[in-house]
């Protein structure tokens, strides 16, 4: 039983590590800020979540201690990390960062133009 438990813990933490490394590679390799935000927010969130789940299971099964703080941290990261990615992407778009040359459409441009015309602040 302990072997299965430890195996599961190791697998969860390794999956988290793998996803974090993939996020780093994505940030280095992808061409513009939006694709980088895409890589960084999703994979890093899942990576850190898996590591936290692994740590939680380790303390639960091996040390008999259920850490409410880790559960809270998992919920907190799951809520806030995508919002951070969304806000950074929006701030980049509104301050005029151009997407990569491979982009085919930009539906947001018309909306932003209309909003700028209707309220010239």
């Amino acid at each position: 039983m302990t072997v299965i438990a430890n195996f599961l813990i190791v697998v969860t933490i390794l999956v988290g590590l793998l996803f974090t490394v993939v996020a780093v590679i994505g940030v280095l390799r992808l061409p513009d800020v939006y694709t980088r935000a895409h890589a960084a927010s999703k994979s890093a969130t899942l990576g850190v979540l898996s590591i936290l789940v692994g740590v939680f299971l380790h303390f639960w099964w091996n040390k008999d201690h259920i850490s409410i703080q880790l559960l809270l941290a998992i919920a907190f990261l799951f809520i806030t990390s995508p919002i951070g990615g969304h806000l950074m992407g929006r701030a980049a778009y509104l301050s005029g960062v151009k997407p990569t040359k491979l982009t085919v459409g930009d539906d947001l441009a018309e909306v932003v133009k209309k909003a700028k015309q209707s309220k010239p602040e």
Binding site: F76, I79, I83, L87, A115, E121
Partner: peptide, 19 residues
Amino acid sequence: MKTNDVILQTTTKVVFFII
């Protein structure tokens, strides 16, 4: 230009109580 803050404000209403 006025930006749309619905996502940020709704998240804040939840996250504030956690913190």
